[in-house]
Write a protein that binds this DNA or RNA. Structure first.
Lengths: 244, 244
DNA sequence: ACAGCTTCAATTGTCTGACAAATGATTTTT
DNA sequence: AAAAATCATTTGTCAGACAATTGAAGCTGT
């Protein structure tokens, strides 16, 4: 069995130590994907702690998506295959909180997001499929409809940019960018988009989609740069109006 | 008080529902940084569950760095200010597991990493401080010493590239890149670096540092591109030799 | 032999009640 | 006034119990 009857350190909480031990076993490959961990009763034996303590440790791991648990005779805790989609959620929550709690100003967040996104543009121009293009066009169309709430407009904006990033065909990039693109949405939601500014954004989105379709990386990067500049300017306007 | 005596849904586990409720309160600002949550006893009352169940919920949140707990008369659970440094660790663990569990090939991971890193180069060329440069030079020096283990060489490589990224002076970028740069290290560790290839890498690092120092963004990007190409080639050699 | 039903055993989910350990506040003592 | 002892509160840990779930095993009727 994986875990010897080992005595743990003192000082730190037992559930933390146990969670660490299991996490390390997962990371270094001692426990492999879909492998079943010992039952809670067995683990309490192995680590010489009570079942509630073991459970707290397992809940810590579950919160990180490292294990899943199921009840029943064949149930138990299993090492989870961490999927990109699952990781998106964590990434977005963490990034959102980081921005809101550390009072990152809009400009900094915007710079990070567009810097990373521009980096994806050349790959996307080369590799995007028809589906990516279709999504981008569809979102542009949605954005140009009147009567769209600011939230819906922002959500569509996110969808547009994710299609652009996904077009690069690199899941690692998509994962990394998920945080950057989505975390900024709450900040964007503070902006009120006038008909005039929506029009401008739609025009830039169209320019981007055209460039991606044509395989014109430079053009896409330039349009993204213009979009960043315009977005920051909009945010400044809002801030200025707030001060009045 | 924040949480009304609310009845929860059925089906999903209670500790998950409670954790979600508190997490949402943190995200939407109902609970602010450093605010103290009700004691475990109070929470069990509020949610009509037992204390172990409340504790499992709190441990889930603690695993995500959303709260910290302290014992004693004035202790309790407090909303944690999520710091960038704390988030680095999570990001790296998650990214590492994503790569190893999803069998992302080296080339894809490498492409993502260098694509993002190249995006940081222009900003770093503009804003890097003397300290960033000094770190880069020091790591280059370390890398050129003989008798360095492959692991130490890789670790120094990571430190070099982090200094480059940090030079951009955008904490959001640094955070995002931490995962990309560090997660690839385990994959890099499978490469055996010959004296010849170390020499080559050191030369490219020097080229990068020179370009950053001179504010020459294009040159830095070109050198990074060359480094990516060389790294991928090295990995291919290793794979080819393995097949023999 | 096979399909459907019942029973069973293992496992997680939840509860109760208790005690230990830590720790700031309070009181007492010097 | 300073130091020491005490206290109250809160988290950490434990033991034991029962409920709920669920696949497996066994049984039954055809």
């Amino acid at each position: 069995m994986i875990f010897m009857k080992t005595e743990l350190e003192t000082k730190r909480e037992l559930s933390v130590q146990i969670a660490d031990a299991i996490r390390n076993a997962i990371i270094n490959g001692t426990l492999i994907v879909d492998e079943r961990l010992p039952s809670e009763a067995e683990l309490s034996d192995k680590f010489n702690v009570s079942r509630p303590t073991v459970r707290e440790a397992l809940k810590r791991l579950a919160a990180q998506n490292l294990i899943r648990t199921m009840r029943g005779a064949t149930g138990g805790a299993f090492v989870n295959r961490l999927r990109f989609e699952d990781a998106y959620g964590q990434q977005i929550t963490t990034s959102t909180l980081l921005l809101s709690m550390n009072e990152v100003d809009f400009e900094t967040a915007c710079e990070a997001r567009f810097t990373l996104e521009r980096a994806c543009a050349p790959l996307s121009a080369k590799r995007r499929t028809g589906e990516h293009l279709a999504t981008m066009r569809a979102e542009i169309h949605r954005q140009s409809q009147s009567g769209l709430s600011d939230e819906a407009f922002c959500a569509s904006d996110v969808a547009f940019h994710r299609a652009l990033v996904d077009g690069a065909g690199n899941p690692v990039l998509s994962y990394q960018l998920a945080g950057a693109v989505e975390a900024i949405e709450p900040l964007m939601n503070m902006i009120t988009f006038s008909a005039r500014s929506r029009e401008q954004i739609v025009a830039l989105h169209t320019e981007i989609a055209d460039a991606i379709e044509a395989g014109a990386a430079d053009q896409a990067e330039a349009a993204l740069k213009a979009l960043e500049k315009y977005t920051v300017a909009l945010a400044h306007d809002v801030a200025a109006r707030r001060r009045d």
